[in-house]
Amino acid sequence: MWKSTESYNRSQDTEPLSQEADPSTAQSTEAVGDARADERGDAWLVEQVRGGDDQAFAALVARYERKLIRVLARLVHDEELARDLAQETFWKVYSRLDRFDTSRRFGPWLFRIGVNLCLDQLRRREAPLAASIDQPHGEGGWAYDLPDADPRIQAELAQEVQFILEKIPVPYRTILVLRDLEGFSSAEVAAIVGRREATVRWRLAKARDAFREHWERRLELTRREAN
């Protein structure tokens, strides 16, 4: 399937954890520097929590709760459920903090626990999921063609994207949400989902292609109904 996967992997081995699309720009370098400062801050806060400082844990919660709730909400499509899962995530993190290796990054570890809780929740749901990423289903239509700056249109667009995401299998959907909706780097996504970076890139490509196919199908159905 991937004939030059090895060469591709070798070219990416030295990729920094938070490298963006163009690492040569000053903004990317500054972003990497800020990310490393945050890592050192997280490690120090973790040590303080281990020493009994609850306010240090409050600082960690304040730093990550909004993004965590947002990620979980994109996966479960329910804000209240996402908040419950986020709270459960922080509680698990607090309980396991004595076993956390501070040489690792705290953020991916936190999101990994949260995403796993989310995936457990999705497996318990009775709603049917797509059988295969190569067999998209096109249902109904929607009168939307090009992106619009109108907030109402943007809200409807977001809702439509959520509808399409539910048709994509969970392992691929998770990577698509983390990479394209929340902006995690490929390395961070790999740390969160517990897979190799090459596997993450392969699944990401499949997920994007599946999304494109669903989107095109819905546009086609909409045009047919309009005609």
Binding site: R70, R74, P147, Q154, L157, R208, F211
Partner: peptide
């Protein structure tokens, strides 16, 4: 185009 749609949807917060 599909990626543009995704990035537009990303700008709209779900919470």
């Amino acid at each position: 185009q599909a990626l543009k749609v995704l990035h537009l949807a990303a700008a709209y917060p779900p919470v």
